[in-house]
Design a protein around this nucleic acid. Structure first.
Lengths: 206, 206
DNA sequence: ATCCTAACGGAATTGGAGTCCCGTTAAGGG
DNA sequence: CCCTTAACGGGACTCCAATTCCGTTAGGAT
């Protein structure tokens, strides 16, 4: 008897053995599916628990809220970053990045997931921080393409590589949020060309 | 007695007199306040009814859901479109537009409102359509700046004016959603300069 | 191999958002 | 000015997600 178990600091951190890890991945997968199907607003922790074949209580205990669960999912997603291209041409690399982003957002599953995750980030500070971390990782992966172009003398010396990479994604996200137009490859190529032209003109100098 | 009142088609459309109009504006104001304070996720129709000093039933009857209420709010916001500038210079007009967008998103109240409204659009088809309409109005207001620049020969003849205006806003929205950095005036000016450079280079030709 | 306890799971409880009922108020036409 | 009825309002009810309780299972240390 002694003391009545006063809750461990954070469940899953003290004994992260087989079962605990199994539960975490099962729940994250289930959360992903649920987000894709119902979006963030329609998220129900009980439903996720069922999909993961895990007790409702477990989900509530380990994550507590839908936003905390999404934040954890984002941390997980950040670890699976896609490798950048190394074409040696700024034009090609930016276009490859734009097309990758376009494909991701246009894909029914991934697109829905990204929308849901961005919505979650706007509902909770923890999820927002996780989302920022995610994009920092993504941008850092591709920034070297631009940095190398700067070294080759293709772009002004004080060009901010991260800003150029963000400039490629920005119009695609903006389009997804504010219009109903499909995100086609032409839009991706336009985004890449625009970012490159602006960079060459020195619009992204620090 | 005769028939038992079988619900009017849409409340507020048959007798849009003083009281009905008063209720609508009071509820829309209250919804705006609630969105700014709690965001879309924390929206409660009961709370809005109290703020508006209106019966809960009225809000549920006339709007039914939080997303429908936000859609109506967006329709209301679209009517108060801000007039564009007429400086005669593409550079100046784009910068003025960028600064206006920046000021709107950086303002604690307006910024929170825009985030909330975009979140709502990602949770409901009706709200999404209302949001698209809103941006169509906004873009159409500023597109003539670019169209005039095309006529003056400053930009390629087949430049898509709306696309250029969207290119100004896109980086500002992207930054708001994916980073924690403050939206300063330098970011606005950079967005305007980048859009202009890309447009001059012909990146936005149809 | 055994024990201790972190972590899990089923079931009952609760709390509040959304709905319904029915009486009241005030547009708007005559 | 009066009448009809669209629209509003308070309060009771329903239903389901969030929480709590307590017994069970299994990681991992000795």
């Amino acid at each position: 008897m002694a003391v009545d178990h006063p809750e461990s600091p954070t469940p899953g951190t003290v004994r992260p053995g087989g079962r605990t890890a199994r539960v975490r991945t099962a729940v994250l997968r289930a959360a992903e599916d649920a987000l894709v199907e119902h979006g963030f607003a329609g998220l129900d922790l009980g439903d996720i628990a069922q999909r993961a074949e895990v007790g409702r209580t477990t989900v509530y205990r380990r994550w507590g809220s839908t936003t905390a669960l999404v934040a954890d999912l984002l941390a997980d997603m950040a670890e699976q970053s896609l490798p950048r291209t190394h074409s040696g041409s700024l034009t090609e690399d930016l276009r490859a990045n734009a097309r990758l982003v376009r494909r991701t957002l246009a894909d029914p599953r991934q697109g829905a997931l990204f929308r849901a995750v961005i919505v979650a980030a706007n509902c909770d500070a923890g999820a927002a921080e996780a989302l920022q971390r995610f994009y920092r990782v993504r941008i850092a992966e591709w920034a070297p393409c631009v940095a190398e172009a700067v070294e080759r003398g293709e772009l002004p010396a004080d060009t901010d590589p991260a800003e150029v990479v963000r400039a490629v994604s920005a119009p695609l996200y903006y389009r997804m949020f504010t219009t109903a137009d499909p995100l086609d490859e032409a839009a991706a190529d336009r985004a890449a060309a625009a970012a490159e032209a602006a960079a060459r003109a020195g619009a992204y100098r620090r």
